[in-house]
Simulated scan of single mutants.
Amino acid sequence: MKWCGVIVQACLLGVLWPPVSVLAEEQTANAQPIKHRYLLSINLAPASCTLHPETRELRQCQEGYSLIVHGLWTEKSATNKPTICSDKPPELSPVQQRVLEKLMPDETVRNAAWQKYGACMGLTAQQYFRAIMSYTNKLKLPEMFKEEGLDRQVDRDELAAAIQKLNTGLPEKGFYLRCQTKQDKTFLTEVRVCYDKEGQFAECKTFKPNCPDYITLRAIK
C-alpha cells in the first residue's frame, strides 16, 4: 500500500497543500469558475493491471500499488468524448512531483490527466493537481482495498455502505462503483466520487454505476 494508510494525507513529504477553498478563490479571481461538479476517479490498480496487459510495465502495476488516482474532471466532461486540450506535460516543481508520485506514480498517467482533463478546466497545472490532493485527502476507503493474497468476493451494496459510513457527509449518490468483467469474474476497477468546487462531497449529477450484486476485489500480489 503506497498511500498514507487508507487516507492520503496532506503531510506527505512534509508539504502542506492549500485547501480546495483556496482553489475556488483562485478560479473566481481568474474569472473562470467551474460551474459543474468535480468527479474524482480512484482506480484499483491490481484489477486494472490484470484487465489491461498494456499497463503492466507501469509502476502502479510493478510496485504493488493498491489505489491510484486516475484523474479529476468536471461531470459534464464525463459525458463527452475526451478532448486533448494541451500537448505539453504539466509544469510542476520537483516537490510537487514527488508528492503526486504517491497518488499517481506514473508520469504518463499524470500527463494524460492534465492534457485530457486539467488543461480543459481553465486551471494551471499547479491548481489542478492541488485540487486532486485536496479532494483525495478528504476521502477514506475501506481497509479491504489493501489486502494481499487471495481475491475476495464482496457484496456490492455492503461495500457501498461501508464507503459511505467512513465518509461523513457523503451522499448515497455522491459516489459510485465501476466494474469490468474478464472471463467469469467481475472486478471492481474504479470508485468515482463527486465534489463541489469547495471540496465538499456532493450528489453526482451523472450517476453511472455498473457493478452487479457481487463483485471481486483483486488482491495485491
Rank of each mutant, 00 (worst) to 15 (best):
S134W: 00
L150P: 05
N137S: 15
A160L: 10
L159R: 06
E158I: 12
E143W: 05
R152G: 02
R152H: 07
L150E: 14
K138C: 09
M133F: 11
D151E: 08
E148Y: 07
E158Q: 15
E148R: 12
R130C: 06
N137E: 15
K138G: 14
V154Q: 03
L159E: 01
Y135P: 02
F145A: 00
L139R: 05
Y135R: 10
F145G: 04
L141V: 14
M133Y: 13
A161T: 12
D155C: 09
T136W: 01
F145H: 02
K140L: 00
Q153V: 13
F129H: 08
E158G: 11
I132M: 05
E143F: 01
K146C: 07
A161W: 00
S134A: 15
M133P: 05
Q153H: 00
E148N: 02
K146G: 08
K138A: 14
A131K: 11
T136S: 15
E147K: 01
E147L: 09
E143K: 06
F145S: 01
E143N: 00
V154I: 12
R130S: 14
R152V: 10
I132G: 02
A160G: 04
K140Y: 04
D151G: 02
L159A: 06
D151R: 07
R156C: 03
D157T: 11
L159Y: 06
R152W: 06
I132C: 07
P142A: 03
L141P: 02
N137V: 13
N137Q: 15
M133K: 12
R152M: 07
R130I: 00
P142Y: 04
V154D: 08
M133E: 10
E147P: 04
F145K: 08
L150K: 12
F129W: 09
E147D: 05
Y135T: 15
E147H: 11
T136C: 08
M133L: 14
Y135V: 15
V154F: 04
I132P: 05
Y135H: 13
S134F: 06
A160K: 07
D151N: 14
T136R: 12
N137W: 13
A131G: 14
Q153D: 10
L159F: 03
R156F: 08
A161M: 09
R156I: 08
F145E: 06
V154T: 01
A160E: 09
E148M: 10
V154E: 08
T136Y: 11
D151L: 00
K138Y: 02
L139A: 05
A131S: 15
L159D: 03
N137D: 14
F145D: 00
L150H: 13
A131I: 12
